[in-house]
């Protein structure tokens, strides 16, 4: 009886040691799954620095596992802590990411609205611009310029629909700049006519 108890204790001890030596595969998979999920949600675009840190931390945890794996007495405690932190940080970023994307979307929409306003203002100016001697040719050229800006304006929505909010913002800024330039030239043509 005494012998049996001794053997049981020994088996239990070995099982505990073996369990402690096992790679934290589940934790790796869980942390990686969250990272993959936020990568698909364009975290590299809308939260680049945080996403980079996550990648670095995940790599450090994997390196730690690789180091321990080579040892006879493996200790994965540190790696587990690192993985737990990666998972927590990844989940935090996953929660924060929609807000960041929404902010980028709103910023793009705001510039799109500004571009539309600039186009409308230029159009209104063109409509009331006197198309007479000395200005008719300029005004007609500016009308064609504005038509180009209006066509390009449609591309902003295409980028927004494709969820390319940063690209949409850049397009909108460029369209706005052109529309403002047209409006300024119309004003100059009107001034020229007054003189």
């Amino acid at each position: 009886m005494k012998g049996l108890t001794k053997n049981l204790v020994l088996v239990l001890a070995i099982a505990l040691v073996l369990a402690a030596c096992k790679q934290p595969t589940q934790q790796i998979n869980e942390a990686q799954a969250v990272i993959d999920e936020i990568a698909k949600a364009s975290a590299d675009k809308y939260a680049a620095a945080e996403f980079k840190t996550l990648g670095d931390d995940m790599k450090a945890a994997q390196d730690e596992i690789a180091v321990q794996d080579k040892k006879f007495f493996k200790k994965f405690g540190t790696a587990k802590e690192m993985l737990a932190k990666v998972k927590t940080d990844a989940e935090a970023l996953k929660a924060a990411l929609p807000g960041k994307i929404e902010a980028a979307k709103n910023a793009a929409i705001a510039i799109q609205t500004e571009a539309k306003t600039a186009i409308d203002e230029a159009k209104a100016l063109l409509e009331k611009a006197p198309k007479g001697k000395g200005t008719k040719k300029d005004i007609e050229a500016l009308q064609a310029d504005l038509a180009g800006a209006e066509t390009a304006f449609a591309e902003i929505q295409t980028a927004l629909d494709a969820k390319d909010y940063l690209g949409a913002a850049d397009k909108a800024k460029s369209v706005k700049e052109k529309a403002v330039a047209v409006a300024d030239q119309v004003k100059a043509a009107i001034e020229k006519k007054k003189k």
């Binding site: 064609a144 504005l146 180009g148 800006a149 066509t151």
Partner: peptide
Amino acid sequence: VRKNLSQAEIK
């Protein structure tokens, strides 16, 4: 032509 050039400028 002018419209094309305007789009080129935006790009």
